[in-house]
Structure formats: structure tokens, C-alpha cells
Design a protein around this nucleic acid. Sequence first.
DNA 1: AAGGTTAGGAACCAATCGGTACAAAACACA
DNA 2: TGTGTTTTGTACCGATTGGTTCCTAACCTT
Lengths: 194, 194
Amino acid sequence: MARPREFDPEVAMDKAMGLFWDVGYEEASLADLLSEMGITKGSFYKAFRDKHSVYLSALDHYNDKVIGSTVAYLADQNQGSGKERILGLFTVVADRAKRNGNRLGCFLCNALVDKAAEGGEAEKKLQAMVRRLENAFYKAVIENPSVNETGARETARGILSAYFGLHVLGRAGLSSDMAEDCISQLRLQLDRSC
Amino acid sequence: MARPREFDPEVAMDKAMGLFWDVGYEEASLADLLSEMGITKGSFYKAFRDKHSVYLSALDHYNDKVIGSTVAYLADQNQGSGKERILGLFTVVADRAKRNGNRLGCFLCNALVDKAAEGGEAEKKLQAMVRRLENAFYKAVIENPSVNETGARETARGILSAYFGLHVLGRAGLSSDMAEDCISQLRLQLDRSC
DNA sequence: AAGGTTAGGAACCAATCGGTACAAAACACA
DNA sequence: TGTGTTTTGTACCGATTGGTTCCTAACCTT
């Protein structure tokens, strides 16, 4: 029995995530957020606590949507062997980076580098996401019965660092040159260890 | 025939670089810069044009000092084979990250992710630094007569992405767990391809 | 010692920052 | 059709942003 809100908080959060992803925490001013989310200040502070809490929610949002579907893809046995899925993921990342000069990179990777996280709740969220990715790689690697646990852990972490590295290069605008070679190297590495 | 300046521009620039490295461009306020550099506003604007030009100079400073010594190390044949030098560099990076929770990461990597660069002069500087690193890895790889040019280029780029990835993990505070495994994986990769 | 020249420091600037207060508007329910 | 409740938009807030002005302090040269 009151006025209904005129915007969908879910899509607003999606827009907020997009902006934080693109420009980081500090560089996303409140005015930018508002125009991106398509709402005004009043609605913003009615619906959310403050800028920082929206940032935290955006991290959760990213974890749900993007990391979630990434992990699901890595776990999907219909997509070929564990090795093939890992390489497939990297190919998708590389293609996305090459397409019309996409410079977004990976929100997780960008946020790890962004200083806005350090020490607080955001840092815990980020580390949890990294662990989640690590475990997804681990499970894909250990599907191969010829690798043991510690070898798979090592491999998963090697893949993780290559994954972030590829995203940094994408962010730098160098993916079109380098991505293919990075993937070729990853393939060699996986042929060796899984 | 005038009053001499009371600070050393070189060390002031070093301090400025340290702050930009630590917190990025936007998050380094002018007040922070001044207190870090140990000078006041008047001296700052007498000696430098503005904040952004100091950022550009800090990138050059990093290129001269840090990238320079890194490249020199990779080229120093007194430090063992090319492969050994590459692994040595990674070990140094990992040790530095583990030492008392160092979360600086790599200024180049941080700045690539930072949006402050895009489109302008900073971006060109950053890409040039990436190329410089890539070539340093390339030269270290191709020392081994059993690898050909395209293979060495591939390998160098794979190493580059692993290098940035390791720095991202260091920045995330996860180096102590993961760095060793990343290096083990890199060793496997280098055993295979150089 | 005097004059010329530059560095240093504080006062000040408009613009923007994130955030609050409050009145008008839009709905649900009676 | 009121009435109560929530959203929305705007005006406003103090604090901080990067940057300028300008006076004084300090030094070199003669």
C-alpha cells in the first residue's frame, strides 16, 4: 500500500557492476553511477545504503553471474575433457577481448588490483572468488586420472595465474597480439601436466 | 643567482612513484602526494606541471629503474642459463610478495588495470614497457639453440602473462599460498619449451 | 651589502565529492 | 474518493578535489 519503485533493482545493480568493472571504485563517481543506473539520488539512497555497499553488492553480483557461469562451464562434462574445457574458457576470454577492442578485462582481476578492497569486507569476497576459480580449475584438472592431488593443485594455480595474466593483457589492449600465443603456451603446459 | 630548491627532484619523483604504485592514480590525492614527497604545493607546481604529468614521469621513472634492472637481470649471462634467469626472476618476485605481506604488486601491472591510462600518453608508455619485458623474456628464451623464433615468441608471451598473473595474486595477498605452485608450473612449461 | 631571481608556503578558488533533508508525486487500500 | 505509505526528485550540506595567486624567504652574483 504505497508507491511502487519505478526501476528494477536487479538491472540497476547490473549497471552498477558494469561501471565499477569498467572504471574501478574511486573513478566511478556517484553521479556516474546514478546516470548509469538510470535513477536519481533519492532512489539510490532509499534502495541502497551507500556507494561502498553497492560496490560490495556488485562484487556479489559478479560472483553469482559471471564467476558462477564460468565455474559451471568448467564443470560441464558435455563440453569435452577437463583440459578441453579449460582451453575453451581461455579461448572465450581471448575472443571477447579481441572483439571490437573490449578493454573491460575481468572484474575480479581489476578489483584485486584496485586498492578499494584492501583490508575490508571486499577483500574477503575477492579472495573467496579467487579460491572458487582455483577449485573449478582444480576439479577440471583432476578429472584426468593420471594426475595426483598435489600435481593438480599446482596446475590449477598455474592456470589461475595465466588466467589473470591474460586478462591484464586484455585490459592493456594487447590481447589481439598476444592472446593466441598465451593459449598455445597453456596448451603445452596442460599437455604436460594433465 | 637565485634560491636553490630544498628538495631533490629525483627522490621526490621516487616517492611519487611509490604512492602511485601503491594506491593508483585517482586514489593518490594531491595532499597525499605532497606529504609523501615532503614538499608543499608551491614547490610542487613550480617543479612539475600538474598531477597527471607527475604520473607520466613516475611511469618513466619505473621504466628506467625497475623495468630496467629487470631486463638487465634477464640479460645477464652471469646468472645462469636463460631459463634459470627467468625462474630466478619469478622467485625474486614471489619472495618479495611474501615478505611481510607486501601488497604492492607491479606498478606496470597495476597501471595497466588502472583506468587512468586509457587512450592517452600513459597507455603508450605502458604498452612500450610491456613490449620491453616481452622482448627481454624472448631473448632469454631464444638463447637456447633448440628453440625457433616463433616458438620463442610464444613462450615469451606465455611467460609474460604468468608474470602479470603472479603479480595480481601478490596484490591480492595470495602469493604466500600460491606463488610456489605458479613457479613450479612455469618450470614445467620452460622444461617443455626451452 | 644590494639587487635580481627563484623557491617555499599559505590563502584562496571553483568544482566536485558522497551524503542528507524534505516536499511533491504516485500508488494500494479502504 | 480519501488516507496512509513509500518512492522520487531537488535543494542543500560540509568536506575534499586539483589548481592558482601572491607574498615572503633564501640564495647567487656583482
